[in-house]
């Protein structure tokens, strides 16, 4: 690696980058709401990761469920006196609190995996089309346009009605509806970068296109993509919940938050509110927390784009 390239890739002096990070941190911490969102999000992540140790019951181990304990209101003790159901039990005698922790886990996994995959696919497509332009760009962007002209929920619905139920299938469907957002944003950002001097310089040095794309252009496209990724994470979790609610998402024996709400919906009408209500609160907290963070990130990282 030559010295010139080194400087190119570091994006300026190391000190400058550090100070930018500090500035970013300061700006981020300035918003109390965003910090609150961050804390909530961290809390949710911890609860999800440590669910097996925190939850009083494994709601997926159906052999431990005793049907006579079903539909207990919050604060009841199970029939054998062994367990306190702080948030009650559902129609299958699952402890609602435990079910929420495990459901949170599934919702977050689905969200994180699908967004990461969509990020990878979308960013690649976007960068490639921006860099090469011409027919590649026209073709890729045409697909993106078609994809975006269909409402996400419809595409996901039709896809899932084909694929069937399952955590993995929901992830495929979510990737399929989300990659286009990343592709469009990555292309937009990369086109701006493409014409900047450092890229011209790198081209003059006849570096391979992969290298220019990934080591020079891509790092500078990350901020807008990060904003989209955050917002899409919330979107993915909400969409997964919606699909599960409509009955085409995860299977009933491995409930995500949306599935829990859907199960509880039938009971809610007759006044057994807790089965749907508490998972609903949990879902709202996660989604709002992520959006608070994402909203503020957007304000900091691309102030022009306020919508």
């Amino acid at each position: 690696m030559t010295a010139a390239e080194n400087i190119l890739e570091s994006g300026g002096q190391p000190a400058m980058r550090e100070s930018m990070l500090r500035l970013f941190a300061e700006q981020f911490l300035a918003s109390k709401l965003a910090v609150l969102g961050m804390i909530l999000l961290a809390l949710c992540l911890c609860l999800a990761i440590f669910a097996p140790w925190i939850a009083p019951q494994n709601p997926f181990d159906i052999g431990t469920l005793n049907i006579m304990d079903s539909k207990l209101p919050p604060g009841s003790v199970s029939g054998d006196g062994a367990m306190m159901h702080w948030l009650g039990t559902d129609g299958q005698a699952r402890d609602v609190f435990s079910a929420i922790l495990y459901g949170l886990r599934i919702s977050l996994i689905v969200g994180l995996v699908s967004v990461s995959a969509a990020f990878a696919i979308g960013a690649t497509a976007g960068l490639i089309s921006a860099y090469f332009g011409g027919r590649t760009e026209a073709l890729l962007m045409r697909i993106v346009d078609i994809q975006l002209s269909f409402p996400a929920i419809l595409v996901a619905l039709v896809l899932l009605s084909v694929l069937g139920k399952g955590v993995d299938k929901v992830i495929y469907a979510l990737v399929a509806v989300q990659w286009a957002y990343f592709a469009r944003a990555a292309r937009g950002a990369a086109i701006v970068e493409r014409n900047k001097e450092y890229v011209q310089a790198a081209r003059c040095m006849s570096l391979s296109w992969q290298r220019i794309l990934w080591r020079h252009i891509f790092p500078n496209c990350i901020p807008p993509l990060m904003v989209i990724a955050t917002i899409d994470l919330a979107h993915a979790i909400a969409l997964e919940a919606t699909l599960s609610f409509l009955g085409v998402g995860v299977p009933v024996t491995e409930p995500s938050l949306g599935m829990l709400i859907s199960n509880g919906f039938e009971y809610m009408m007759s006044g057994t509110y807790w089965i749907a209500f508490f998972p609903g609160i949990a879902l709202a907290l996660v989604v709002v927390a992520i959006n608070l963070v994402g909203d503020h990130l957007r304000d900091i990282l691309n102030p022009r784009n306020e919508i």
Binding site: A234, A238, A241, T242, G258, F265, M268, G280
Partner: peptide, 15 residues
């Protein structure tokens, strides 16, 4: 408003 899932809002209103 825009982060809460649609069905969630409906559910809470019904409740």
């Amino acid at each position: 408003g825009f982060s809460l899932p649609n069905f969630w809002v409906g559910l809470m209103l019904i409740m």
